[in-house]
Each structure stands twice: as C-alpha cells, then as structure tokens.
C-alpha cells in the first residue's frame, strides 16, 4: 500500500487525511504537503491517521517538522488516531506529550476551538 493524501477545510481547520504507509520512501510527500499548507497560510491542522497502516521514525520526524512550522505561526497540529499499533510508536518515543491525539476529527477540532 502506497501513501494517499487528501485535505479539506472543516470549521476553519485544515484536515489532512493520510492513508497507507508512512516510511522513509513516502514520508517526503507528506512533508511536502504540510509545507505547502503552511505556505498557503493554513496554520491550524488536524492530521487524520485512522487509515495509516505503518508509521516509522521518519514519519514521526515529518509530523514533528510540521508541528514546528505551524507553531512558528502560532498554529497547531493535532492528530486523530485510535489504532494501537500506531499509538505505540508515539508512546515509545514520548511524542504523546508533544501532540494532541484525539479519537475523532470532530473531537480534535472541538479541542482546538476550545483553546482559542
């Protein structure tokens, strides 16, 4: 399974749907999309990882890089993920403390709006 990327606006927040495998081969495409969104002034991002089948440290690096970019504009990057196999990687690396990780897109958006 390759990587499929899509994005759309919802309630003023840009939602990025990611499907497939994020590894050293495919991660650059996600990185380019996040950079493109920030360049187009989308600073409130939610990355939906419910259909991600594989994530390695390269993928984590891309997400952390995206977080740094949006934070430079007082923005945010939240994640939607309920898959234990993916959450385990975030726990091992301590990144559960860095990202807001939510069960649904609506929950991620609601959490972000409540902080505004």
């Amino acid at each position: 399974m390759d990587l499929k990327l899509d994005h759309y606006s919802k309630d003023g927040i840009e939602v990025v749907d990611v499907e497939g495998e994020i590894d050293v081969y495919t991660a650059p495409r996600l990185r380019e999309l996040l950079i493109e969104l920030v360049n187009n002034r989308f600073y409130q991002l939610v990355v939906n990882m419910e259909k991600v089948e594989f994530l390695d440290s390269t993928g984590l690096g891309v997400l952390v890089g995206g977080l740094k970019r949006v934070r430079a504009h007082d923005g945010s990057l939240d994640l939607v993920c309920t898959q234990e196999r993916i959450l385990k990687i975030f726990r091992i690396t301590g990144l559960t403390k860095v990202f807001g990780i939510h069960d649904t897109i609506d929950e991620a958006i609601a959490a972000r709006r409540s902080e505004k």
């Binding site: 050293v24 081969y25 991660a27 650059p28 990185r31 390695d56 440290s57 390269t58 984590l60 690096g61 891309v62 952390v64 890089g65 990687i89 091992i92 690396t93």
Partner: peptide, 19 residues
C-alpha cells in the same frame, strides 16, 4: 538524504530498542 526528515538523537535505535 533519505533520513532528512528523521528526528535526531538515535530515535530509530530507540524505536528498535523499544520494540
């Protein structure tokens, strides 16, 4: 390089050690 997007400080090794 291919790991240009990787996190520094041996994260890959840390993940291996954790798994």
């Amino acid at each position: 390089g291919p790991a240009a997007t990787a996190l520094p400080d041996g994260l890959g090794i840390a993940v291996i050690a954790g798994l």
